[in-house]
Design a binder for these strands. Sequence first.
DNA 1: TGAGATCTCTGCAACGATGCAGACATCATG
DNA 2: CATGATGTCTGCATCGTTGCAGAGATCTCA
Lengths: 337, 337
Amino acid sequence: MAGPTLRDVAKRANVSIRTVSNVVNGYAPVSAELRARVQVALDELDYRPNLIARNLKQGRTGMIALVVPELDVPYFAELAREVITAARAHGYVVMVDQTDGDGERERELLGRDSRATMFDGLLLSPLTVSAEELRARGNRIPIVLLGEHIFNGSFHHVAIDNVAAARDATAHLLGLGRRRVAAIGDQPYATGETAQLRTAGYRQALARAGLEADERLIVSTRHFHRRLGAEAMESLLALPEPPDAVFCYNDLLALGAMRTLTRAGRRIPDDVAVVGIDDIEEGQYSTPSLTTVAPDKGEIARRAVDTLLESINGSAAAPAEIVVPHRLIVRESTAGE
Amino acid sequence: MAGPTLRDVAKRANVSIRTVSNVVNGYAPVSAELRARVQVALDELDYRPNLIARNLKQGRTGMIALVVPELDVPYFAELAREVITAARAHGYVVMVDQTDGDGERERELLGRDSRATMFDGLLLSPLTVSAEELRARGNRIPIVLLGEHIFNGSFHHVAIDNVAAARDATAHLLGLGRRRVAAIGDQPYATGETAQLRTAGYRQALARAGLEADERLIVSTRHFHRRLGAEAMESLLALPEPPDAVFCYNDLLALGAMRTLTRAGRRIPDDVAVVGIDDIEEGQYSTPSLTTVAPDKGEIARRAVDTLLESINGSAAAPAEIVVPHRLIVRESTAGE
DNA sequence: TGAGATCTCTGCAACGATGCAGACATCATG
DNA sequence: CATGATGTCTGCATCGTTGCAGAGATCTCA
């Protein structure tokens, strides 16, 4: 199980451990003859450097952690892909973990026995942990937050402008002439910051169009999953005056809502237009395809990784809100065929 | 940046380093008085153990790596979730990496500078690397393969019975009275082992029904993505005698195919019935919902993790093919509303 | 009271690698 | 030829932790 060490190679090549290390790393000048002899020994023993030992000595691991609520939520899976790609471009690898939106799990990250010390930095998409808490437990490693809006400037934070994104989505529906625009996904409690920002954007769009919000058209959901979108849509259809358009706070909710509409025999977008947020690939292939607000995921990942690595290297600027662009992508769910 | 070490705590509490270590780990008996004193110092300094050092000493990291082709393919994302959960139950964390189906990337894992030495074990879902190659480069750490069928018994391997799964799916379509059953997803080249097994199952089902396979109804695809499923379906619809049912080698292909069918005005399942494999959540909410063969992903993950950990602990049996159950889930795409 | 058992606590060595300072040989230069 | 510069190579210390053996102190019981 235990592979050969520098010592084994050194013994075989009859040189010092240090020289073998130099050959492996190409550090100091080594004569051609010795280099060759060492190389033979390296090959014969199939030496692989013990990265743990190297890391201990160098004080860094070349690994960062990405912690998301749920890896099988397409948005996070797609984001994870981008993060892994961005990190690899800098020679880093990514440990992905999920918290299941469980506060305990998130807090574990900060606790004494956290494995956080194994990583050079942490990308965290928090669901229940607040910035306060994060700051209170002075963590050892640099952190960059994803997606959640943090007002105090304690941490680097990368996200889209949630208010503007929601406003754009709602304005698009209003621009189609819809007047009873519902919203699915509000979370009017402490940990629902992102949802609340989207609700604010929704209200702004209505206000700018001179419309008053109908509170019955704003449906809260505890999660952003397909099933809750489907259920929320059912409750909206049961209203005396059902909506003629729905703005869903993410694509999964929208896909669930569309499922309900189709089953109920409503035509999309003729009877009810639907728009989401996230631009997950699934929305391109759904029936109908889904109009959505697309965050630039590649940019989110790159900015987050770049910022984190700068923090790791100590060359980071002060914590900042980094706003990544988004754009509306119109598909069949609002535009017809 | 660098946190306090055992030495710092020891100095502050005026005890030996070893005693602090004992307190932290609860190893040897420590008098209540000393323990309290040490605890105070630990808290005051907010000591966190350096896991790298601990790992070096103990020769294990408590981390396993999961390497999949693409993390944003729902099947792999859902599998990753299960693997992370299963590993956590044993106190392990999971580093997730993706290869993009790139042979180079997969081979990097085996190379000299691979980070594989950082992990206690490796779960690999290979696309292009063969078992031969894996064995040739004698890897240092235990490996368990996922999904790919390996005939020589060099490695532990966890998968469903691909032939049976394909047979079941095809038989289901035939049982509906369909006679022109197409297949989307064959990969008649070296690295397409899994696809070929599914083709074999498809042929078996036809043969058992006394039907001859129409080679024009078997469409190859380089990947298992939605877009290729959509394109394959287009080519099938262009045939003089289009199929009345399609067996797709995974759900993404099926969702793409359904997209094409809907756009072309064909009714599902009336005109064309569709079945996939994988049971990704998306298929429950598509329109129509997707009939599929569901592998027991939780079981795959648990068996794979258990087997890997047994190998790590040296208590593993000889490499074995571990077959995990699957079952057909009938939804609207074959059963109507 | 004293020998041995028991309980706490400590120091040293080691995991496998790299940083550093210096040993030794070779070479160029005045 | 002496001197210093240069080029190779080596040994020691160290990263922060844990395994091991043993030192003292305390206790037990004949």
